[in-house]
Computed example of a mutant assay.
Amino acid sequence: MAKVVVIGIPGETGLWLADLTAGTVTALPKPLSGDLATAEALRSAGGAIIKGVDFAVAVSSAAQVFAGHYDG
């Protein structure tokens, strides 16, 4: 089971590494390399890459999530 997720959202130019075990989120340093750089280039061109994630939703604030809402 994955314990680390790489996240990118529209409007953010970089990617983020969320370590679920440590409870941390860290910006990935640039320049990226390898397959991750290729995926970031596709993302920058408007593509979406989803692998190994079965639920992801971008919301406007943490308060919305804790209230049981998301921008659907």
Rank of each mutant, 00 (worst) to 15 (best):
T24A: 00
G68M: 06
L28D: 02
E40Q: 14
A58T: 12
G14H: 11
S60Y: 07
D71Q: 12
P10T: 06
G14E: 08
K30V: 10
A62Y: 12
G34S: 02
P31S: 04
A48M: 09
L36N: 02
L28S: 03
L42K: 11
K3N: 10
H69R: 15
G8F: 04
K51V: 13
A37I: 00
K51I: 12
K30Q: 13
S33Q: 07
E12F: 08
Q64G: 09
S33W: 01
A58L: 13
G72N: 13
A56V: 01
E12V: 08
I50S: 15
P31Y: 03
D54M: 04
L32I: 01
V53G: 00
L32Y: 02
L36C: 01
P29G: 11
S44G: 14
A18P: 00
D71L: 12
G34I: 02
T24Q: 00
P31G: 06
S33F: 03
G52A: 05
V65I: 12
G68T: 04
A18F: 03
A45N: 10
A27E: 07
L17Y: 10
G34M: 01
V53C: 01
T24N: 00
V65C: 06
V25K: 08
A45K: 14
L20I: 03
Q64T: 08
G11L: 02
G23C: 01
P31F: 02
G8T: 04
L32K: 05
V25N: 06
T26H: 07
S33V: 07
A2E: 10
S60E: 15
G11Y: 01
A67G: 11
A41W: 05
E40G: 04
S61V: 07
E40L: 11
E12D: 14
S61R: 11
A39V: 10
L32P: 02
K30H: 10
G52C: 07
F66W: 13
E12Y: 07
A56T: 00
A48I: 09
H69D: 10
D19E: 04
A41P: 06
V53P: 00
M1H: 07
G72E: 15
G14K: 13
V59Y: 06
A67E: 15
I50A: 13
L36E: 01
A58V: 15
I7E: 04
G34V: 02
G8Q: 11
V53A: 01
G34R: 02
Y70C: 10
A58Y: 09
G68K: 08
